[in-house]
């Protein structure tokens, strides 16, 4: 059996990393942080549906980077420097001072847009990674006892989302083939609602017949203790963050 880390450990590590990236505000440390994340995902990715959140976070980060770059080119404060090309300038009314659309695009302006975008993108990727290596459900399970019941409820409620998405796709396809037209929201919504209700009922039945809510006190199966290894992982995270800031 693989030694399990405490669910909070990886989140602690990545939070430290994200803080380091933001505080150092440097595109090189950001790239290094992405490399660290990618390495950890390769080593410790979990097999559930949440395991792919690293991939999704990269896609989201790329979109963000592109949008940041475009807005950086089109709108922005002029920066002196090497001019790369000039966009036609749109003159705004005088009551909108300080905003400029178009005009000369300098290398410096491109660079600052890119590095700002990169920092935000990196933070997104870092949290995507944290999600990939630790199921968010496990995180909820670490909640203290007095809100444990609430945690369990939340965990179960969130577990229906992935199924919901596949159901929508399935119903849409079936209905498109029935009528040859794009199905309306109502016609997809009704079977979906019905299915979700059936699911909810069978889930509730299963919980009820297994004794959920019968005992006031509940126990934990194989709770994962917070040990020295966990502490050292988080410590490493803060160490890396410190180095990033100092560099």
């Amino acid at each position: 059996m693989k030694r399990k880390l405490h669910p909070l450990t990886m989140w602690g590590f990545f939070t430290a990393l994200a803080v380091g990236v933001i505080a150092s505000d440097n595109s090189q440390t950001a790239l290094a942080a992405i490399a660290i994340s990618a390495f950890i995902v390769l080593a410790r990715k979990e097999s559930g549906p949440w395991g792919s959140s690293f991939r999704w976070s990269i896609i989201a980060a790329l979109y963000l980077l592109i949008i940041r770059l475009i807005t950086g080119i089109v709108i922005g404060v002029p920066r002196p420097g090497t001019e790369v090309f000039t966009l036609p300038r749109i003159h705004l009314p005088s009551w909108l001072p300080g905003i400029r659309i178009g005009g000369p695009v300098t290398l410096e302006r491109l660079e600052s847009a890119l590095s700002e975008g990169l920092i935000i993108a990196t933070v997104i990727i870092i949290f995507g990674t944290a999600n990939s290596v630790t199921s968010p459900k496990k995180l909820l399970r670490t909640l203290p006892t007095f809100i444990h019941q609430l945690g369990t409820t939340l965990v179960i409620a969130t577990s229906v989302f992935p199924q919901l998405i596949t159901s929508i796709q399935r119903i849409k396809r079936a209905q498109y083939l029935r009528s040859g037209r794009k199905p309306s929201t109502l016609s997809v919504g009704i079977p979906l609602l019905e299915e979700s209700l059936t699911r909810a009922v069978s889930l509730a039945e299963s919980m009820e017949s297994r004794g959920f809510g019968i005992s006031k006190r509940t126990s934990r199966y194989r709770p994962i203790a917070f040990e020295a290894l966990d502490l050292s992982v988080i410590g490493t995270g803060f160490g890396i963050a410190l180095v990033m800031v100092l560099l």
């Binding site: 005992s215 126990s219 194989r222």
Partner: peptide, 12 residues
């Protein structure tokens, strides 16, 4: 598998 036992407060 452990869910039912957790709910009924079985000892670890």
């Amino acid at each position: 598998i452990a869910f039912g036992m957790e709910s009924l407060n079985y000892s670890p």
